[in-house]
């Protein structure tokens, strides 16, 4: 099988661990990732906050290029996913835009979570599990833009999404129910309103602990940045001793496959997951 892949800017830098683990997992699954030729930044929140034309035109260029390949288009970042879906809705006339485009809306735009949790892919992942993640309790954190607003994302279970939970369970880990799956971590305020990010992320840590989780799974570079890189300072500010490693879902899949590069990915995290993995005999 062959799919188009739009990594997005973070996966070239701060979320290299996500990109590396994703490519490794797809390689094992035998699914060919074709990077969208000469892709550009989707504009992210900065474009829609600043200018409507930019916010549609920047992602549209990527859709026009991807459509020529005529494969499903997979996106690992929630913000990129949301912006490209928004451009799709503009192209097919569901939302108004001044942007002229050749994009016809023929290809399916999927977040990695949706693609990997499709029945056939879920079964395929299950077949490659060599080291079940028994003993790890995980809360799945989807963040905002994977599900909302549903008129853009086409996600139907937007108040209680399940795709990541299905993946966690098939890996042999235990996905813990919690009601903060789609609550905000502060997202694009990561570098500007750190006060807001700390407070929102502290809520998430608090609730993850209450849910009985010992780690958090994410599928978005910005969620990871807020929850992993700022966890220590949030712990210090709120007088908590949080130890909640934050895994990209693809890292957990790679771990369960016994992939040889796992340590390389996990060494990039600020909250070192090795302690947790050793405690359950996975390292």
């Amino acid at each position: 099988m062959r799919v188009s892949y739009y990594p997005g800017c973070s996966l070239e830098g701060s979320a290299r661990d996500y990109d590396e683990s994703l490519r490794a997992v797809f390689d094992v699954l035998g699914i060919e990732l074709r990077e969208v030729e000469d892709w550009n930044c989707c504009g992210a929140s900065s474009a829609h906050i600043t200018d409507d034309f930019l916010s549609a035109a920047l992602p549209m260029r990527n859709l026009e290029i991807a459509e020529k390949e005529n494969n499903d288009l997979l996106i690992p970042c929630m913000a990129c996913f949301n912006r490209l879906k928004s451009a799709e809705k503009a192209a097919i006339g569901e939302i108004k835009t001044d942007v002229k485009t050749s994009y016809k809306g023929k290809i399916k735009i999927k977040h990695i979570l949706d693609f990997l949790s499709e029945d056939s892919n879920l079964a395929s992942i299950g077949r490659f599990v060599k080291k079940p993640l028994t003993g790890i309790k995980v809360v799945s954190y989807y963040g905002c833009l994977y599900a909302r607003p549903p008129k853009i994302t086409d996600v139907t279970d937007y108040e209680d999404p399940r795709s990541m939970d299905k993946l966690i369970n098939i890996l042999g880990a235990e996905s813990k129910p919690w009601s903060f799956k789609t609550d905000c971590c502060g997202g694009n305020l990561a570098l500007t309103r750190i006060d807001i990010v700390r407070r929102l992320s502290n809520n998430l840590f608090d609730m993850a602990v209450e849910a009985g989780a010992d780690c958090i799974a994410v599928a978005c570079p910005l969620c990871h940045a807020n929850l992993d890189t700022r966890q220590k300072e949030i712990s210090d500010e709120y007088g908590k001793g949080y130890y909640l490693p934050v895994f990209y879902i693809t890292e957990l899949i790679g771990l369960s496959m016994g992939h040889s590069d796992v340590e390389k990915w996990l060494r990039r995290h600020l909250v070192d997951p090795m302690g947790l993995l050793r405690s359950v005999g996975l390292m």
Binding site: C9, N40, C41, S46, L54, L189
Partner: peptide
Amino acid sequence: DVPVFHSAFLSSIKKRGRIHE
């Protein structure tokens, strides 16, 4: 700070087409 951030973000895209963090 917030609008300044967004303007820095967009100027990075304008220069190279991608964000260099």
